[in-house]
Amino acid sequence: MRQVILDTETTGLEVQRGHRLIEIGCVELVQRRATGRTFHSYLNPDRAIDEGARAVTGISDEFLLDKPRFRDIVVEFLEFIDGAEVIAHNATFDVGFIDAELARAGVENARLADRARVLDTLALAREKYPGQRNSLDALCKRLGVDNSHREMHGALLDANLLADVYLALTAGQGHLGFADERTPAEVRAVAAEMQILVRPRVLRAPDAELALHAARLEAIDKASRGACVWKRLDAQ
């Protein structure tokens, strides 16, 4: 299974008021393992960033002036997420902004859900931890994910954190025998990577050690007047 962990940063909180994307970050997982492939881009929104958004992201209007617009990166972005399961925290927020940008760019089937299945980790967390705080920071703390380097919000940084949170949140779900879609060759490759010995290696004692062992049993047998259990077993 191919999954894409996605996060975005925006000029403000309300897409209905014309707020825009300023950063997209994606991390690829295949069979619940990070592949090292990412997609990341800052975006020129053609409008000012709200003060609150500047405070949490550290991104300034000036920084984005020479960055590409969404229409410039939309083909590469869609190629990265097409056919995958897209995983986002509070997915309604991210998907709403992406859908608005797709429509603005004139993309056919201008909805993310037309390109990929979407999974919301906030909904998963609320189901698993009802009545508790389920922000990304709260989940990192609860699930033991190190987020000490998260001084500001950032799309790629948060996507990497969310990948760890998602794997911890859903631990065990990919290991049921009837749900495992891996081929035997893939299973063997994973076993080799994890240094699992599929066939036990037999180490035989050298002759010198066998001689010492026999001498020791003989000494025990003499001391116990023929009651050495191991010698009787060897004789059977």
Rank of each mutant, 00 (worst) to 15 (best):
Leu29Pro: 08
Arg32Pro: 02
Arg32Thr: 07
Arg32Met: 15
Thr35Pro: 00
Thr35His: 05
Arg37Cys: 09
His40Val: 06
Ser41Phe: 01
Ser41Tyr: 00
Tyr42His: 05
Tyr42Pro: 01
Pro45Glu: 04
Arg47Leu: 05
Asp50Leu: 11
Glu51Thr: 15
Thr57Pro: 03
Leu65Lys: 14
Phe70Val: 02
Phe70Pro: 04
Val75Trp: 14
Phe77Arg: 07
Glu85Ala: 11
His89Lys: 13
Asp94Pro: 10
Ile98Lys: 03
Glu101Lys: 07
Gly106Val: 06
Val107Trp: 09
Val107Gly: 03
Val107Lys: 12
Arg111Trp: 10
Leu112Asp: 03
Leu112Met: 05
Ala116Val: 03
Arg126Asn: 11
Gln132Ile: 08
Arg133Cys: 04
Asp137Val: 01
Ala138Phe: 01
Leu139Phe: 01
Cys140Glu: 08
Arg142Glu: 01
Leu143Gly: 00
Asp146Gln: 02
Asn147Tyr: 10
Ser148Leu: 07
Ser148Asp: 14
His149Tyr: 15
Met152Arg: 06
Gly154Met: 05
Leu156Thr: 00
Tyr166Ala: 08
Leu169Cys: 09
Thr170Pro: 07
Gln173Trp: 13
His175Leu: 14
His175Met: 11
Phe178Gln: 05
Phe178Asp: 11
Ala179Val: 06
Arg182Lys: 08
Pro184Lys: 06
Ala185Val: 12
Ala185Ile: 05
Ala185Arg: 04
Glu186Asp: 13
Ala192Val: 05
Leu197His: 09
Leu197Asp: 14
Val198Glu: 12
Arg199Ile: 11
Asp207Glu: 09
Glu209Met: 14
Leu210Tyr: 12
Leu210Ala: 08
Ala211Trp: 10
His213Gln: 15
Ala214Arg: 08
Ala214Glu: 13
Ala215Glu: 15
Ala215Phe: 10
Arg216Asp: 13
Asp221Pro: 05
Arg225Leu: 13
Arg225Thr: 08
Arg225Val: 12
Val229Met: 10
Arg232His: 06
Arg232Phe: 14
Asp234Thr: 09
